Computed example of a mutant assay.
Amino acid sequence: MPKNLYNSDESTLKTPSFITLIKDKSVSFFIDISNVIEYLKTVMKNLFTKTFEFQEFLKQCYQIGNKSVGLISITGIIVGLVLTIQSRPPLVEFGAVAMLPGMVAISIIREMGPVITALICAGKIGSSMGAELGSMRVTEQIDAMEVSNTNPINFLIIPRVLAATVMIPLLTLYADAIGIFGSWLGINIKDNVSLSLFINQAFSQVEFIDVFPAVIKSFFFGAVIGLVGCYKGYNAGRGTESVGIAANSAVVTSSLLLIIVDLIAVQITDLF
């Protein structure tokens, strides 16, 4: 009889042990950390060079604002409406309806506006950066730039990161204004308050300490979105499915980092 070539006692498909799995995951994690550190070092080194692509920076600023302003407008009005409608009944019970504009304005300016704007831009802008740079990696356009002695970091990554860092705070301020306007619409569902009176009541409660930290952390939100989106797209794999993976990973990672940055910012603000 012919010799059995498939010995069941020595299967080639062995399930890795728990220790091996932990070891592989740990090695992969530290490799990713080293790649991220090297990427950040490269970006920071090229950030202060003379070869700054100003036209590409303006193009990315326009695209970021143009792609996000419509969705942010709708979301801002809805957030203002919802906060007002949900907050009004408890204040009516205590006879403190006059505090509603100021309470909603502070909530939007300090937290809701920056965070919701950043999360929307993470889904809109981060995925776009990841997909665009990922497709350029798959089609070897980035390799062609490197071969032709063109620095892809200066042309592709720096303008996108700076554009996101500049535009997210502007979009945040716009979202704050739209959210406060939505709150005025929400108040006028049950009451009749003029816009000028509402603005006076809202901003009489807002102080500089409410606005300044929110604006500062929105700069960090923009930097996180730009850096993560460009990193995931720039380091995408070679297959066509890598484009979708890069876009999805950019959204998930940046959204998680935004929540962490917001937590740190709130803790720092609470010290003052």
Rank of each mutant, 00 (worst) to 15 (best):
Y62P: 02
I72H: 02
A98L: 06
Y62A: 12
P114C: 11
L119R: 05
R88H: 06
M112A: 15
V82Y: 01
F94C: 00
P89N: 04
S107T: 14
P114S: 10
Y62M: 11
G113C: 11
Q86T: 11
A96S: 14
L71P: 05
Q60E: 15
G126H: 02
G123Y: 04
L119C: 10
G76M: 02
L71Q: 07
S73Q: 02
K59E: 06
I85Q: 02
Q60P: 03
A105C: 14
R88Y: 09
M112Q: 07
C121S: 14
V115F: 11
A105P: 09
E132N: 14
S128I: 00
I78E: 00
Y62N: 12
R137P: 07
G80M: 01
S128N: 03
N66I: 08
Q63M: 11
M129P: 00
I109M: 13
E93K: 14
S87C: 08
G65S: 08
V104L: 09
I74K: 06
I74F: 15
I109K: 10
Y62I: 10
T117V: 04
G130E: 00
L83M: 15
S135I: 09
L100I: 12
A122D: 05
P114N: 12
M112H: 07
A96M: 13
K59M: 10
T117H: 08
S107P: 08
V97H: 00
E111F: 14
S107V: 05
I120Y: 06
M136C: 10
A118Y: 08
G123E: 00
G80K: 00
Q86M: 13
G113T: 10
I109E: 05
I125W: 02
G113L: 11
F57Y: 15
S87W: 06
G130C: 02
G70C: 08
I125G: 05
M99D: 13
S135Y: 08
A105E: 09
V115T: 15
I108W: 05
T75L: 08
S68D: 01
R110S: 13
V82A: 14
F57S: 09
G65C: 08
S73C: 13
G65F: 07
T84G: 09
P89W: 08
T117S: 15
Q60T: 08
A98E: 12
G70N: 12
A96K: 04
S107I: 07
M129K: 00
S68K: 03
S135H: 08
G80A: 03
S73Y: 09
S68H: 03
L71S: 10
P90K: 06
I74P: 06
L119D: 07
V92F: 06
L83Y: 13
G76L: 03
R137N: 13
A122E: 07
P101E: 01
V115S: 15
Y62G: 12
E132D: 13
Q86E: 14
I72Y: 07
L83W: 01
Q86N: 12
S107F: 10
V92H: 03
P90C: 07
N66M: 10
L133E: 01
L133G: 04
R110N: 12
L100N: 01
V82R: 01
Q63L: 11
P101S: 04
S87D: 03
S73M: 15
R137E: 10
I106F: 07
I72P: 03
R88K: 15
I77H: 03
G70P: 06
I74M: 15
G123T: 06
M112E: 03
S135V: 11
